[in-house]
């Protein structure tokens, strides 16, 4: 064991482990989905034809699934709907998460740990249950409407559930920790003497925030936005539970193609297209990170 894990070979093996994990559980499933997306649909099990007919030795692939995507506006609108909801959720997370991360990073050192624990605490219950609980809060005779009517702020209950607002609220709630944690990491690292220097040079606190704190926390903002935006685009559970029949998102379309229409090739094409769509912002992020690392030597 000693000889295996020590020296360069050992380091290589340890470094290999995450790549092996990604290859088995990400790359291989993706290739399977890619393969299905190029197959002909059929009624049966599995619900698609083999890609290569070994008996005839012929390639039976088709781009029909992708053509369906381009031919029907539904898919385009679903993508746009997903992007729009994800963008709203990201902005919401940023608006709530930045002040929270800032407050935690500037709290007395002995209290920060407890505050971070509170941020992570929701993960201790099931995601599904937490989203489900929002139905109870947001529905017509739910907690929120009752409270608002009780306070005399509204007289008629608001229709929040089954709207994009409910979906956004659910996403902001669910993804907030992913925004707070990277923001906290960058804000906590910041040298506070920079703010003193800014004040010393005649800069008022709010301007110092805009011209020093905000630019220096940009890496955290970008990381947090990526961590929220990317999973939010593909989100299925939250739009399904909190959204209405008009809530058109790619996750729901995927579900419908796979399980209602049993059109696996089209469903797979939707999945592949979504991945390609998301790879672009990820690459942009990587590029930014690499440039920043280079810049800061």
């Amino acid at each position: 064991m000693k000889s295996l894990l020590e020296g360069r070979a050992g380091r290589f093996l340890v470094g290999l482990a995450p790549y092996a994990w990604l290859a088995v559980f990400f790359l291989v499933p993706f290739l399977i989905v890619l393969k299905i997306s190029l197959s002909e649909p059929q009624m049966g099990i599995p619900p698609y034809m083999p890609l290569v007919d070994w008996a005839e030795g012929a390639f039976k692939g088709t781009l029909a699934g992708y053509r369906t995507l381009l031919g029907d506006d539904l898919y385009l609108f679903a993508y746009l709907g997903s992007l729009r909801l994800a963008a709203m959720a990201t902005l919401g997370c940023l608006a709530l998460g930045y002040p929270a991360a800032y407050a935690i990073a500037r709290a007395p050192r002995h209290r920060r740990h407890a505050l971070l624990m509170l941020v992570a605490l929701p993960f201790w219950t099931s995601f599904l249950i937490r989203v489900y609980a929002w139905i109870g809060i947001l529905k017509t005779e739910g907690l929120l409407n009752m409270a608002l009517m009780g306070l005399g702020i509204i007289s008629e209950p608001l229709q929040i559930l089954e709207t994009d607002i409910a979906v956004t609220i659910g996403m902001v709630y669910s993804y907030l920790p992913f925004m707070i944690l990277p923001l906290y990491a960058t804000l906590e690292k910041m040298d506070l003497s920079l703010l003193e220097a800014a004040a010393d040079l005649g800069c008022r606190p709010f301007r110092a925030f805009l011209s020093v704190t905000l630019p220096l926390s940009m890496p955290g903002i970008i990381a947090g936005c990526m961590l929220v935006f990317i999973p939010a685009v593909g989100e299925f559970v939250i739009p399904d539970l909190l959204g209405g029949p008009d809530t058109l998102v790619i996750g729901k379309v995927l579900w419908a193609e796979f399980f209602d229409n049993r059109d696996w090739p089209t469903a797979s094409a939707v999945a592949v297209a979504m991945l390609v769509l998301l790879v672009v912002p990820i690459m942009a992020f990587q590029h930014f990170e690499a440039k920043r690392a280079e810049r800061e030597g």
């Binding site: 040298d191 003497s193 920079l194 003193e196 800014a198 220096l216 800061e296």
Partner: peptide, 8 residues
């Protein structure tokens, strides 16, 4: 400042 506190 001792650390110079230059804006990076």
């Amino acid at each position: 400042f001792q650390s110079y506190a230059l804006f990076p």
